[in-house]
Nucleic acid binder design. Sequence first.
RNA 1: GGAGAGGUGACAGAGUGGCCGAAUGUGCCUGACUCGAAAUCAGGUGUGCCGGCAACGGUACCGAGGGUUCGAAUCCCUCCCUCUCCGCCA
Length: 424
Amino acid sequence: MIDIQLLRENPERFRKAISLKKFDCNLDLVLDLDERRRTQIGEFESMRAKQKAANQEMAAMQKGSPEFLEKVQELKKLSAEVKELEAACKDLEAMWLEQVLSIPNVPDASVPIGKDESDNQVLSTWGNLEDCSSHAKPHYDIDGFGNRIDFPRGVKVTGAGFPFYVGPMARFVRALLQFFLEEARQAGYTEVLAPLVVNEASAMATGQLPDKEGQMYVIPTEGLYMIPTAEVPVTNFFRDEILEESQLPIRRCGYTPCFRREAGSWGKDVRGLNRLHQFDKVELVKWVHPEKSFEELESLRKDAERLLQKLGLPYRVLLMCTKDIGFPHAKQYDLEVWAAGQERWLEVSSCSNFTDFQARRANIRFRPKEGKVTPVHTLNGSGLAIPRTLAALLENNLQEDGTVLVPEVLRPWFGEERLVFNDA
RNA sequence: GGAGAGGUGACAGAGUGGCCGAAUGUGCCUGACUCGAAAUCAGGUGUGCCGGCAACGGUACCGAGGGUUCGAAUCCCUCCCUCUCCGCCA
């Protein structure tokens, strides 16, 4: 959530941010509620102070004495008033909070202004598209693909979007995960193995609730949600905590399966590995000093880029425009890998700086050497999402003989030079 | 899942209706002592919100949410969590 103090001081800054992000929320209502809330709090607290003082007097009186009983009668009325004022406060507070939570984060000045995805800037492109296999074809059209990634069995067992990875392909996914995790470790991220379901408070803190609940699978009997990304449990690790300045920055990585309902994305771009309900991903998360978050975003992006470079996959870096960055984001890069068979770019990582927006919502703060407790800045990025990376890899490295050449960096983990699709 | 016990500040641990934002101890910070350190002594040491330029004042917070009462850390209800025993189980 935003800093209400800043909104009071400079509403225009937020008005602009909202229009740039094309979000719909009523700033005047927020400011009005803020005003009323403060007045209400003032009234309640002064009445409450009066009550406390009177109760103080009572404590000194002899219980049951006439003046005591008289005082009780007198205070009953005051007590009722206090209760009313308190209830009014709570109501206003709740309305106020709901509105404050609906205001998006302000985009950084470096974020290009744009109206749709065509305004995202391609910052750089790495690798040569021509270097990809001349035999490339969409991964789902590779001979024997179904032997290795079994969608029909997934449909039978669970439903669409839950494939089985079989034999060498299962091992290959594991090799990718191990490669990603090891790279992250060497880049200074501490590995965590996190819960795959989270409670409501956690989903609220990272912003999946209340607006994006359609994205998550729900376990209604327990009131829990299956995670759409490791970001949720990993970020919530420090929820409601005060960190020491000397601890910052904290860098963590975590592998988890991710579960996404993807409601509404029916029919488009969903073939093969392009979009699944369950997929594996390594996520990188940082908690940093507010002054360092934008440089930490650059290094986060580079950490993700390095993975694609080592895998030899051509990719491009997009600086997302104001319309395309999400609600809590201040700045966001997307990494898109080239899938030579489909001849299209696939998003495999999104690296974001949330500044203090998510931290304020999740109540993650730090104690500066001087001054008062302050929200940290949080960042995260994929490093990387498996299925699309895998799709590009299969397509780009497809050989004439129908096998896929395994990148050097994966061989220590996979143990073989080629991925074969047809069982001998 | 059943039975019992319990959840208090950074930690340990008192407190069972008003004198409790909360004893005491530990830790931490400052000062004294010391060449320096240890030990000792003295003082300080939470977070949110509201008001205030500030000093500061007010208010809330003793697992969470309701309730009783003039007044709740303390009594009642619901929920969550931890521990012990039993059951079940990878």
